[in-house]
């Protein structure tokens, strides 16, 4: 079984700062991390490999520093890592990103055919969730998004059973292999990696490809040039106004609030003394 996980390096949006004057991201304010959903994707690959055996490769597109997220993936349990890094990839929207990644996947599969691709549900910076399905279409394999459980992997008969989250519940899907999954965080808990993984990760040096290392690439479909969407402008979210303040002592505040709520008592299901 050859599983490839796509992993992205992202700024930690939890602590991100926006420059209020230019409305741009202060990249120095945020440390770069492995996209949290992708950590769960690698963990899921490890769980599957523990049952089926085989190899886990990870693939990332980004600047040379993105080697860090490949090392992090090796720490979680990946075997091999590939980074595609080139100015030609820069400024890509999701269409151009999925194109570049699918070209790298085609090259990886030449040496070792891919049975399963796993992506995160979305990346916390771009936050579109569009790259995974885009890759699947380009490789012509079924995409299965919002995955919360991989319940069965049958590598002999080449199918998987997947639980997929829905608006109001979930569905169980059978898909042929190869296919592509995008995973939710609840799919698993990140386990503590064995010490040997950490040692491997520290030493690990991924394969790095530039655009010229990939085959059959139409360069007009890459990067900014290959991106149909552009960011027109950035602006602060519309300012909200807020309403009345209820002033006074605590008792008076509570009294006033009760008055307001009693006007909508049709909505309140107040428990009765004898119920």
């Amino acid at each position: 079984m050859h599983i490839v996980v796509c992993v992205k390096q992202v700024p930690d949006t939890k602590i991100i700062k926006i420059n209020p004057k230019t409305n741009t991201l202060d990249r120095r304010s945020a440390p770069a991390i492995l996209n949290p959903y992708d950590a769960h994707a690698v963990q899921e690959a490890v769980k599957i490999r523990n049952k089926t055996g085989g190899t886990i490769s990870v693939l990332s597109m980004g600047p040379p520093q993105a080697v860090a997220v490949i090392k992090k993936s090796v720490e979680i349990g990946a075997d091999l890592g590939y980074l595609i890094s080139d100015r030609a990839f820069a400024g890509a929207d999701t269409l151009a990103t999925s194109y570049a990644l699918s070209k790298a996947l085609e090259k990886i599969s030449k040496d070792n055919p891919i049975d399963l691709v796993i992506c995160g549900k979305h990346a916390i910076d771009g936050d579109t969730g569009q790259v995974g399905p885009g890759i699947a279409r380009r490789l012509d394999i079924p995409p299965i998004t919002n995955v919360i459980e991989v319940s069965e992997v049958n590598k002999e008969e080449k199918y998987v059973h997947i639980k997929r989250k829905q608006i109001d519940g979930y569905e169980v899907i059978q898909s042929q292999l190869p296919c592509l999954l995008t995973v939710e965080k609840e799919i698993n808990d990140i386990e503590y990696a064995p010490l040997t993984n950490m040692i491997n990760a520290a030493r690990y040096e991924p394969v790095i490809w530039s655009v010229n290392d990939l085959e059959d690439v139409d360069k007009t479909q890459l990067g900014l040039k290959g991106s149909p969407t552009i960011v027109g402008k950035m602006f602060s979210p519309p300012k909200l106004e807020g309403g009345k303040r209820i002033e006074g002592s605590t008792d008076s505040q509570v009294e006033q609030l009760m008055g307001i709520l009693m006007e909508r008592k049709d909505l309140l299901k107040i428990k009765t003394a004898n119920s």
């Binding site: 700024p11 949006t13 939890k14 991100i16 926006i18 409305n23 991201l25 916390i124 910076d125 936050d127 149909p228 969407t229 552009i230 960011v231 027109g232 402008k233 950035m234 602006f235 602060s236 979210p237």
Partner: peptide
């Protein structure tokens, strides 16, 4: 965008 800190207008 960026965790809701900012809005971006996207054009095609």
């Amino acid at each position: 965008a960026f965790g809701g800190n900012i809005m971006a207008t996207i054009l095609c």
